[in-house]
Amino acid sequence: MSLRAAQLKVALCHVCGQIEDTTIAARCGRCGRKLRLPDPRSSAERSMAWLIAAMVLYIPANVLPVLYVSGLGGGSESTIFGGIVEFLRSGSWGLALLIFGASVAVPITKFVALGLLIGMSHGNSSAAPSQRAKLYRFVEFIGYWSMLDVVVVALTCRLVRFGSLAAAEPRPGIIFFCAVVIATMISAFSFDQRSIWMAGYRPGHRHG
């Protein structure tokens, strides 16, 4: 049977990692921050709120066009998926796969993984904690690569400005896509990793 930090009445400072005795200290003796005790339920709820926002924003991010390219023969708008298809048509399989990874696979993996982690922590599940911790670190690591499409659209629009010969402009889908990336990142950071290891522990019972 493993002991919880709260049962020993100690807590780790979330800012500098110092261990403090919670019976005498309300603030960390090293960096002066208020000691924040883990609260799995509220961290899961905050994280879930950002995740739901991200999932909702992901719909317009994919339905709306992200880029408009015009040339002598007229112009056309493309969505994120359209951009991937275009790379496939021109034979750039590697790049199509890369963009598919960053813009489709990463966000959807994050939705599923974070949803699972948040749900299990919220439900106080004790199943597979070390795998869940690994999954969380993976989600944290892959998260920011989704910004790739925003960079690609920005650079394309700056580099294709040849008046009536050829011109590229951003379209509103990219605003939603950028918002999805930010919301999933905030969702991941709002999630308290410690809650994975805290099955059976309820805040408020820690001195009981």
């Binding site: 790379f87 021109s90 750039s92 790049l95 890369l98 963009i99 944290e140 998260g143 920011y144 690569w145 910004m147 790739l148 960079v151 690609v152 920005a154 650079l155 394309t156 580099l159 294709v160 040849f162 050829a166 990142m185 950071f189």
Partner: peptide
């Protein structure tokens, strides 16, 4: 740390070399 995305910008620039390179010289 997680908000600093130079690597993402770099990779994006490489993709754009191929993407835009198909239309004009880069």
């Amino acid at each position: 740390r997680p908000w600093a995305m130079i690597e993402v910008f770099f990779l994006g620039a490489l993709i754009v070399v191929v993407k835009v390179g198909g239309w004009v010289s880069v």
